[in-house]
Design a protein around this nucleic acid. Sequence first.
DNA 1: GTGGTCTAGACCACG
DNA 2: GTGGTCTAGACCACT
Lengths: 124, 124, 124, 124
Amino acid sequence: MISFEDFISVDGIPIYLQILRHIKRGVVAGAIQNGDELPSRRVLSALLGINPNTIQKAYKALEDEGLIESRAGAKSYMSLDVDKTEKIRIQLLENDVGSIVSSLKQMGLSKEDAVSLIEKHWEN
Amino acid sequence: MISFEDFISVDGIPIYLQILRHIKRGVVAGAIQNGDELPSRRVLSALLGINPNTIQKAYKALEDEGLIESRAGAKSYMSLDVDKTEKIRIQLLENDVGSIVSSLKQMGLSKEDAVSLIEKHWEN
Amino acid sequence: MISFEDFISVDGIPIYLQILRHIKRGVVAGAIQNGDELPSRRVLSALLGINPNTIQKAYKALEDEGLIESRAGAKSYMSLDVDKTEKIRIQLLENDVGSIVSSLKQMGLSKEDAVSLIEKHWEN
Amino acid sequence: MISFEDFISVDGIPIYLQILRHIKRGVVAGAIQNGDELPSRRVLSALLGINPNTIQKAYKALEDEGLIESRAGAKSYMSLDVDKTEKIRIQLLENDVGSIVSSLKQMGLSKEDAVSLIEKHWEN
DNA sequence: GTGGTCTAGACCACG
DNA sequence: GTGGTCTAGACCACT
């Protein structure tokens, strides 16, 4: 089952993109697998305190990318296979890790400082 | 002089915020210091391939935070002191590193995997 | 409902200021009252052939003066009371009439000529 | 000689257009005639407390409309004839008086109220 | 040349 | 549908 407990909205990025990214990260983490049921728009809207239209927009985007199957009036299910999952993994690791490293470098940190900083923050 | 050579625009985040953060990171890194001259809107806009108005918005936000001094018709300069710099450092380390760790965790990485991933990407 | 049928854009003056003044004049005229619904950005923008953002800027300025109440997703309404209305009346009569008289004088008109000119144009 | 003593800058309209309009009003008023010498850019700049570039822009606009003759390094003179003067008169009376009447009407004034208001402000 | 502002179009979140 | 914001281009006044 997909968890949204650790979902935190970040400033600046469109919310529906953050939801989409959250789900993709879950896929990469293996926490979300093919056939998993997605929470209904109404439930997720209540859980995250976000307008149902915005949830709908995120689900629509996932559908457009072929990652979920929705039938009118019915529940939505993850539609994953090895290729899709691998593609998402590459996409996320390249982009996210790339921008993470870029951020750390811009702050003038050495590789050692960056690593120890992350290790220090890992427990919190 | 402030360098924007290593500036990479990330999709989804407002560009003006990315510019703002890039400058703040430069301050934390010590690469940007009090009195430093900022590139003009036109110069930076040409360099980054971005509309001058977007640069203006980033500069205006920094000016509102008291980090830049601008006068019409004249150049803009960094206005920093120890307190401001330290405040930015804390702000960045808390927020940026926090969201970095959060991202890595959401991708299901162990601390060891995350660290080795970052080390691997560091050289690129 | 607020009417914009007699709105004529004058060249040189920022459009958003003209819209703002038009509304203030309606308030002074008594044609706009507390609680009146404002036309939405899109409606007014289509009516006047102006970008919605320019309407937005006028409304935002009025909101900053406390003359309009806006909530995201909902309509905008006039927020007036006797004090605000009187303040606008004074503001307009002083500034507008003052600049009108100044204009007529600069054109070298005598008081009599100016009056007869205005009377002649009144019917058009 | 052209007087700029009663020149008052109004909010919103570009300054160079206001200078241009001021001169046109002087022409309509008969206070400015063919062959009249214009104050040098430097003098007018000092008199009005406005940047020389802005004065230059106004003079350039007047030149483009064929209302003044300037020779490099020499003084500028009004270049008027009956046709030009009449054209300006019509232009100003139509536009200015039209927008004046429009303003007064929008304030909900009757013709009589408007006239008496203007007469009252005439002396100040 | 510089920064400041106005107009415009597209997108976002919300009711 | 609503208002809010980001990006873009053009113009203004000033050094």
